[in-house]
Amino acid sequence: MFYNFNKIEEVKIRLRSAEGHICEVEESAALMSSFIRSMIEGFNEVTEVSLPNINSVVIEKVIEYMRHYKDKDPPIIKKPIISSKMEENTSAWDAGFIDADWNMVVDLMTAADYLMMIPLRDLCCAKMACKFKGRSIDELRAEYHIENEFPSEMEENLEFQHPWRLE
């Protein structure tokens, strides 16, 4: 009798988001998260993990990353980054995956930190570093709505000590 092993249904892990939505992911992919791995290994037959501080949009994004790297190692991003363009620091897939706005990257990074997914956290950190690289202080303050908290004397002192900081 022919038996198609590919048709064996893989165990699915249900991830419950902050809004209570359920997102399903294959167990082999979910094991990329050390947090989920410890839940599965610590409590037999766990099939649902509650993630009360991660919304469903971010969970779906995390799952996309888990599935892509289920069977291979993510590329390592070298420090320091060589360019403000992610595609010059890592693979094209990673660069496309992390091409998101600041809030999404922050949420993804927080989720990666919580889920203990170091490669994803590193990817987010590198992406945020790209947003800093080669930009002036004034540009960064304007983009992220950061007020100048330094008194003018301190600004002058910083400029005197490190004139190249504004280069």
Binding site: I77, K79, F132, I137, L166
Partner: peptide, 14 residues
């Protein structure tokens, strides 16, 4: 992930 000179620059942001 930033070069040292840019870490120093980043200090001045906030």
């Amino acid at each position: 992930y930033l070069p040292i000179s840019e870490i120093i620059r980043a200090e001045s942001i906030c």
